Simulated assay, not measured.
Amino acid sequence: MIRARVTGQVWSTKRIETLPNGALLQVELENGSSMVALDVLGCGVGESVLITTGSVAAAYFTKIKAPVDALIIGSIDE
Rank of each mutant, 00 (worst) to 15 (best):
M1P: 04
R5M: 10
V6Q: 01
V6M: 00
T7R: 10
V10C: 01
V10E: 02
V10L: 13
S12M: 12
S12N: 13
T13H: 07
T13F: 08
T13C: 09
K14F: 05
R15Q: 09
I16D: 08
E17F: 01
T18E: 15
T18R: 12
L19P: 01
L19N: 06
N21T: 11
N21H: 14
N21Y: 04
G22L: 10
G22C: 12
G22E: 00
L24P: 00
L24C: 05
L25F: 09
Q26K: 11
V27H: 01
V27A: 05
E28L: 01
L29V: 02
N31I: 03
G32M: 07
G32Y: 04
S34T: 15
S34H: 11
S34K: 09
S34N: 10
M35A: 11
V36Q: 08
V36K: 08
V36I: 15
A37G: 04
A37V: 07
A37E: 08
A37K: 12
L38Q: 05
L38W: 12
L38E: 00
D39S: 10
V40H: 09
V40S: 14
V40N: 07
V40K: 11
L41E: 00
L41R: 12
L41V: 12
G42R: 09
C43Q: 05
G44V: 08
G44E: 11
G46T: 02
E47R: 02
L50A: 01
I51R: 06
I51L: 10
I51V: 15
T52Y: 02
T53Y: 10
G54A: 13
S55M: 07
V56E: 13
V56A: 12
V56F: 04
A58E: 11
Y60F: 13
Y60D: 10
F61G: 04
F61R: 09
T62P: 01
K63S: 15
I64E: 10
I64W: 05
K65N: 13
K65F: 14
K65C: 09
A66S: 10
A66C: 08
P67M: 10
V68I: 15
V68F: 07
D69W: 09
A70Q: 06
I72F: 07
I73R: 14
I73S: 04
G74T: 04
G74F: 00
G74E: 08
I76F: 03
D77H: 14
D77K: 15
D77I: 14
